[in-house]
Amino acid sequence: MKRKSKSDMVFDVIVTIICVLCLLVVLYPIYFIFIASFSSSSAVTSGKVILLPKEITFRGYEMVLEDPRVLTGYKNTFIYAIGTTIVGLCLTIPAGYALSRPDFVGRKFILKYYVFTMYFSGGMIPTYILIRNLNMIDKGLTVILMLSFSVHNLLVARTFFANTLPQELWEAAEIDGCTNGRYFFEVVIPLSGAIIAVIALYYCVAQWNDYMTSLLYLNTQSKYSLQMFLRDILLASKSVAMDTNDPEDMLEAMKIAQTIKYSVAIVAILPMMVLYPFLQRYFVKGVMIGSIKG
């Protein structure tokens, strides 16, 4: 049966080549950031760094790690991400479960009430005014709260529960005198490790990569998230250590500005890239669950 026609062979070869090209297109920019972060700025700007790092230096990383903003940003983002994940799970998982129960009167209405907000929102300014009227401007808690519930995640959780927990299981438990609360904590939660991981990751990554919330609602530098500082360093060219008074430091910072940019990019994406291989299957799972129409 292993008989391949000539056109199929050609097809295989072409597909493999395109596949390798796709791989390179995605991989090379990331690889380049990595090697450029170890190379001297002059080597990078003169085009010598293409495949391997040249004139290896760790000065970029030193400058980045010495920068108090990076440390502050990391600390804040860490706190925000943990907060968002916890609040997000508390809001999403119980609600997702309740809304998956067919004997829950009113679930259709509640779902519509939620889904409507995916398609129509008050917009940036009314939301800002609301936050200001609630006296929540410039508070870390606001950054956590603004990202700690998403209807999309709720729908993913709901679909998971609807597809994995048969209604008969609950009915049997109810006959034996089990309450909804006990059933949720002693049966549903232990069976839902996968979905809890997926939802936690979604909230965590959303917060880790978010900068808009900080941009809109925070005014104090010491509360900024990592992405805000990254924007300063990467895009607004307020490079590392530019606020120093030492002219030599300033000159050096200007010289290695590019190396610093690459170093800071690596510092920012490193946690994601290190964790990614372990977490990837959960993300794929999340996409798959989300794609099944509930």
Binding site: N209, L234, A265, A268, F283, V284
Partner: peptide, 16 residues
């Protein structure tokens, strides 16, 4: 690997 860039933040991507 083609899935990975999704986890790079918009800020870092635009900076790069």
């Amino acid at each position: 690997i083609t899935y990975a860039p999704y986890f790079i933040s918009v800020v870092v991507m635009c900076g790069m």
